[in-house]
Amino acid sequence: MLSNVTVFDFETTGLSPQRDQVIEMAAIRCIDGEVVSEFRTMIQFEGKLTAKITEITGITDSMLVGGMDEETAFRVLNRMIGDSLLVAHNAAFDLSFLHFALQRLAGRTFINPFIDTLTISRDRHFYPHKLENMCDRYGIELTGAHRALNDVYGCWELLKGMHVERPVDDYLNRLGYLNKYGPPAWSPPHARLYGTENRYQN
């Protein structure tokens, strides 16, 4: 199940994949359970970051000046992904940014299968389900959350921990969303969507 995986993460200028832009991306390609390649880059941005984005990510305007241009960055990422299984925490967010960037830059999208570790987290555990919360539960060290490469390695270790605990095969292409928010505005055509609720410990 985890023999050919790309774990990836985006930091962005906002929440809208149609209007906002990826400013940092990171990915690791994992073959037979081992990390075989790694990619991380800042991405040039012509606008100004909001104070909130800098507060959340620690990324400043000056850090983006020497970054890759957006098209080159996504070309590198796309080659790295190949035909692998895509993995992200809150995959609805990252997959939507991947889709709209590829549509804008290359006129196409991706067809890769995916696994969302947030969907698994909501099914198996009580609230909260942020990546740092889940890493704490599985004894995974996560330093510098909300920086792309740190989150990628945290997500990879979380996925492995979950798979050892109970195989994650049934979560292939499953995307759970909170009922109070409704389904995501965009999701891959091959996604199996279903509504869910946070569970709270008494």
Rank of each mutant, 00 (worst) to 15 (best):
L2K: 08
S3E: 13
N4A: 04
V7E: 03
V7M: 02
V7N: 03
D9R: 12
E11N: 01
T13A: 04
L15A: 13
V22M: 03
E24Y: 01
E24V: 00
A27I: 02
A27N: 04
A27M: 03
I31S: 14
I31G: 04
D32R: 12
D32G: 03
E34Q: 14
V36I: 13
T41F: 00
M42H: 07
I43P: 00
I43H: 00
F45R: 06
L49D: 13
A51V: 10
K52H: 10
K52M: 09
E55I: 01
D61C: 07
G67R: 08
T72F: 08
N78H: 13
M80V: 07
M80T: 10
L85G: 06
V87H: 05
F93T: 00
F97G: 00
L98R: 09
L98F: 14
F100W: 13
L102R: 15
L102D: 02
Q103V: 08
P113H: 15
I115P: 02
L118D: 07
L118Q: 15
T119H: 06
S121V: 05
Y127F: 15
P128H: 12
K130F: 00
E132L: 05
C135N: 09
D136C: 04
G144A: 11
H146S: 03
N150K: 11
D151C: 01
V152D: 10
G154W: 07
C155A: 14
L159R: 01
G161Y: 11
M162Q: 12
M162N: 04
V164E: 15
V164R: 15
R166C: 09
V168R: 10
D169R: 10
G176V: 08
K180M: 06
K180W: 02
P184Q: 11
P188W: 09
Y194T: 06
N198W: 12
N198S: 14
R199E: 11
Q201K: 15
